[in-house]
Nucleic acid binder design. Structure first.
Length: 261
DNA sequence: ATGGCATCTAACAGATGA
């Protein structure tokens, strides 16, 4: 089974890239982030025409996640409230979580808040959001032991996941100590990085800033991840970043990442 | 130190992203 994750930075702006990519890369499930569209305007029919079932959780202008699956998904849930029904509704005002089950595997598609700048209000929101995600995962693991947690985490866990021209990594958004600690606490529940099962070296990135020709200079960050529970991690046979869509005209600033298990 | 670039909104500048 192949599961891909791709922050498309607007599914409507990227529709042609997404449909072309799916035709060339017929994955079982594609997890999209930053769809930036309300559900009524999601380009559902274009994707269904390729044989994909669509499960969407969007909002106006910002955020938004979706699952595209060749086979129908079971037990689809959205938001924190899908698993934590008592959570305050404000934590789901930003649409960042959608999940579904395929062949007994829970696919968890996340768009973690960006955080803006260290110590900003958005940064505190990011850390609070990750704290709720910890509770969410603990609950989910009680009923679903096999989880593929993927998406745009907006966190680079190790220095080698960041290009060498970033100064003060420890105080930078996406690599600060508190962000890494929060992510490590999630992983301590029993998740491992699929990419690192196959690739030890740094220099592999999934996001490059649009500005300053970052992509052509490979000044990027690896912030899009597939984290697997133990049985899935054992079964994983590959995990790779596809650079091709990032080379196109008007690309997303993220590249898709694909895991196979 | 700043802004670079891209997307969205009922905009023509500002918020957001990372």
């Amino acid at each position: 089974m192949k599961i891909a994750s791709w922050n498309v930075n607007s599914v409507r702006s990227r529709l042609e890239h997404v449909t072309n990519w799916l035709q060339q890369n017929p994955v079982d499930v594609l997890c999209l982030q930053e769809t930036k569209v309300v559900d009524a305007d999601f380009p559902r029919s274009d994707l269904e025409a390729l044989g994909y079932h669509t499960y969407i959780y969007g909002q106006k202008s910002y955020n938004g996640v979706a699952l595209l699956s060749q086979k129908p998904l079971e037990q689809v849930t959205t938001g924190f409230a899908g698993i934590l029904p008592d959570i305050e509704p404000e934590w789901d005002e930003q649409k960042r979580i959608i999940t579904g089950v395929i062949d007994g595997v829970r696919i968890l598609n996340l768009y973690v808040p960006n955080g803006s700048e260290v110590d900003s209000e958005k940064y505190k929101y990011k850390l609070g959001w990750l704290n709720w995600l910890h509770k969410y995962l603990k609950t989910l693991l009680q009923t679903t032991p096999d989880i593929c947690m993927c998406g745009d985490f907006n966190i680079a866990l190790e220095d080698k996941d960041i290009h060498e021209n970033v100064s003060s990594i420890k105080n930078h958004i996406m690599s600060s100590d508190a962000e890494r600690q929060a992510l490590n606490q999630l992983l301590a529940l029993g998740f491992a990085d699929a990419f690192r099962k196959f690739t030890e070296k740094g220099g592999h990135y999934s996001w490059w800033d649009y500005r300053t020709m970052s992509f052509s200079r490979n000044r990027g960050w690896r912030i899009d991840h597939h984290y697997l529970t133990p049985e899935l991690y054992k079964k994983a046979v590959s995990c790779a970043i596809d650079l091709e869509p990032r080379k196109l005209v008007k690309p997303s600033d993220h590249a898709p990442v694909i895991v196979e298990f």
